[in-house]
């Protein structure tokens, strides 16, 4: 455990200039990990908020912090994890040794972790706690057609892993902008109960407004990211065509994502005991 005395954690995320909820989960995970006192320091940095990714290079005093583990709070590998973050943080790869003596370790994005599958299942169970799983169609929603992002692939992978558990009547990966479309949920599913879990890092325009409209539980413009969008998660289940529809908040808001970040940080720094 001694290595942690000089190791800091940097959680990097996208952030937003228009959505106040975008950075909230990242800040919450950082606060929780800070509370656990596992690292010498825990900081966040954002592409679109403060402190910036560029600021992050100066957040840790090299006299006291010798190692920095960087964990991208992103749902998948893609443009940001492969291009933007390494460029802005001046990382050379998985391990970067700086002239000031600090070593920075670049971890995998949160969405890649195997625990994410478990979180999705738990979130589905918590959203519809009284419904037998074999009467549920579980829909994992991603954006789809993201430029250079692989969130659609990640959602498909998670759906396949949950399907393999054999607990749900159906498990489908659906998308906002490509087939299979989330708006076709009535045709895609045949069970009396449907649980929808957005596969996003934070809540915002997509989970507050776009997906509810596509599901048919909200009219266009009925809510906004800056308004009371979170109400959609509280008001279910929705009765539509003799079916009950349960709608969860984005998976990245789950407090247990903090566990994933800790594990990825340890793994990145080569400190995870379970690492091969």
């Amino acid at each position: 455990m001694e290595h942690r005395l000089s190791t800091a954690l940097l959680i990097v995320a996208h952030g937003s200039t228009v959505n106040p909820d975008s950075s909230a989960p990242t800040l919450a995970h950082a606060a929780e990990i800070r509370r656990r006192d596992l690292f010498a320091d825990v900081q966040c940095a954002f592409w679109k908020e403060e402190p910036s990714l560029r600021d992050a290079r100066f957040l840790f005093d090299p006299k006291t912090i010798r190692k920095v583990s960087v964990v991208p709070n992103f749902i998948s590998e893609g443009y940001f994890t492969q291009t933007v973050i390494p460029r802005e943080l001046e990382l050379n790869g998985k391990v970067t040794r700086r002239s000031d003596g600090q070593t920075w370790y670049y971890g995998e994005p949160v969405g890649n972790h195997s625990l994410m599958t478990e979180l999705l299942v738990q979130r589905a169970r918590e959203t519809a706690p009284d419904i037998p799983e074999n009467e549920i169609s579980l829909l994992i929603v991603a954006h789809g057609t993201d430029l250079n992002e692989n969130s659609a692939v990640a959602a498909k992978r998670e759906a396949e892993k949950i399907r393999a558990l054999g607990r749900y009547a159906q498990v489908l990966n659906v998308y906002m902008e490509e087939f299979p479309m989330v708006s076709d949920w009535r045709e895609l599913t045949s069970t009396p109960h449907v649980v929808v879990v957005p596969f996003f890092i934070s809540d915002g325009l997509h989970s507050y407004e776009d997906i509810p409209v596509l599901l048919g539980i909200a009219g266009k413009g009925s809510d906004s990211a800056g308004g009371q969008g979170g109400d959609f998660f509280q008001r279910g289940p929705y009765r539509i065509d003799d079916r009950s529809l349960f709608y969860a908040s984005s998976i990245g808001t789950d407090p247990r994502v903090a566990d994933i970040i800790v594990q990825l940080a340890s793994r990145a720094a080569g400190a995870d005991d379970s690492e091969n």
Binding site: A45, P51, R57
Partner: peptide
């Protein structure tokens, strides 16, 4: 209130803040 600004001042005081 001012994310990261204290750290920038500390880096500046230690002559390790690099401008771009």
């Amino acid at each position: 209130f001012y994310p990261g600004r204290l750290a920038m001042i500390e880096a500046w005081n230690q002559n390790r803040l690099i401008t771009t």
